[in-house]
Write a protein that binds this DNA or RNA. Structure first.
Lengths: 168, 168
DNA sequence: TTGTCTGCAAACACTTTGCACTTTT
DNA sequence: AAAAGTGCAAAGTGTTTGCAGACAA
């Protein structure tokens, strides 16, 4: 019961598995627990990298028979998972990229423009800056997002010969 | 002459007006100085807020006769101005937003999700964090971008009754 | 004159939506 | 049975592009 009212909070209760938490979320919203939604959460939970709707869709297509959901459903469900606090959404160029947010600490990204790799890091200092600046402007911060763009070690050393990947 | 070879540098020579600098840029690239490009740089230079291609296009449409350029030309020219170091481009949601970069100091943004306002601030500390993190990962930073998302003072106090503007 | 630029409309990449049908409750 | 979800294809959104005619150099 405490959990049900917990969904609006930024920081989460990690007693439940992502799947369980998503079901809770659906229930408390009067939404239905469908095959597609289950398949999607489960699949996403196994995925530890950043991904976008298209990659998820492709992955589902490669999965054993049955484990399928349409493009529309994938998009819809990703949105719900963001609402449920399971995923965090990030606009990279023109597409939306997702990463786990449930039980994961806040972190920032280094984005390599050559191979599109994302490297994570975190910084307590940054949080302090954020709160100080927000207070100064009477601004209520909900989230923040630092991306440092540049060229990663691999690409600098020329290790990545092909020089340009298309996806995360 | 020194100026001509200076375009690849991050920090710029502020001896020239934006217009002059753009003409230099065009010349050194073998590009032509057209009416449209002139109208656009001039118009953008008068504009001190953040804007996107659509807003610029609309503004141009409202301008005295003649001062017109097509949508395609506006998009193309904005890209050139970014290359020339006059503008900085930022992806906000799904559209690209521009701001002056010529002679302006690096700064970050508070983004109000209610009225879409952008508030600027800067932080030397952040630059230090960025360089430290980049060094740690042997990453060569080219730029960075911190956006703190939340609700601004005006919207919190309910001053903005309509609660949702569509544009910057 | 020569090659770049412009404007138009069509193409794009990704996401969202309307609707008839299917499923959950 | 009622309400919500799904899949499909069609519509959006903002940006980019191909091409014929216009215009700087």
């Amino acid at each position: 019961m405490a959990i049900a009212s917990d969904f609006s909070l930024g920081k989460v209760d990690v007693a439940l598995s992502p799947q369980e938490r998503f079901e809770e979320f659906l229930r408390t919203r009067g939404k239905r627990i469908t095959q597609q939604r289950l398949v999607i959460v489960e699949h996403v939970s196994k995925q530890h990298e950043h991904f976008d709707a298209d990659k998820l869709l492709a992955d589902l297509r490669n999965t054993a028979e049955g484990a399928k959901a349409s493009k529309a459903t994938v998009y819809r469900t990703l949105g719900e998972m963001v609402d449920a606090g399971l995923l965090k959404e990030m606009e990279l160029g023109r597409r939306k990229v997702y990463e786990h947010d449930y039980g994961y600490p806040q972190h920032e990204h280094l984005h390599c423009t050559s191979c599109q790799k994302l490297i994570e890091f975190s910084s307590d200092e940054l949080i302090r800056i954020r709160d100080a600046v927000a207070a100064q402007h009477q601004f209520r911060p909900q989230s923040h997002h630092l991306i440092i763009t540049g060229i990663c070690a691999d690409c600098r050393s020329g290790r990545s010969k092909s020089r340009h990947q298309d996806r995360v």
